[in-house]
Amino acid sequence: MTEPSKTLLMVGNPNVGKSALFNRLTGGDAVVSNYPGTTVDYTKGLLVVSGREYGVIDAPGTYSLEARDAAESVTVRLISENPGAAVLVILDATRVERGLYLALEVIERGRPAVIALNMIDAARDRRIVVDTHMLQKILGVPVVPTSAVTGEGVRDLAEMIRKAQKADIEKVRARADGRFNEPERSGGCAGCGLCGGC
């Protein structure tokens, strides 16, 4: 990648804490509520991290990129209208499977992505353990555990945004089947994304 993305789109299932995380990242004023469908329009904010500026967009929650309702189509439109944007996919650590579907769709579209594993505090309370490193290895994009409530991991996430990474879905599939040894890049990197890929 030659130049850093200037726009960061936040997408994820409804009620995973996107708006809460958005407020943490940008100091913004997005409305946070405990029910799906709080955000039906997008909110914009500004994030400055290590000298780079990002226009951050908090999009309405969606289960997939095939929109079912008007709020979801706002998100789908945002994604196609911002082809150069990096996508921050937020997963609920207590229900990773649900959000992964959307994360895969984003990856398939060839978008540079970062994944935030939000609600990590709630997952811990419910004795759910997510192997972040394994997830990162399989997906080939950075994965950061966060909690928008306690603020845990939010700084790391902000730092990681510039390492947003494209991944090849076929390789993801291979790695999910346990075939890790396919050469990823000339450098022989495992595709964890941590190196930034450049």
């Binding site: 990773v96 499977e97 992964l100 419910r126 004795r127 759910i128 353990v129 997510v130 192997d131 972040t132 394994m134 997830l135 399989i138 997906l139 993801v172 999910a176």
Partner: peptide, 8 residues
């Protein structure tokens, strides 16, 4: 992927 990464 979930099988490989999530343990409840």
């Amino acid at each position: 992927i979930a099988r490989k990464t999530v343990t409840a």
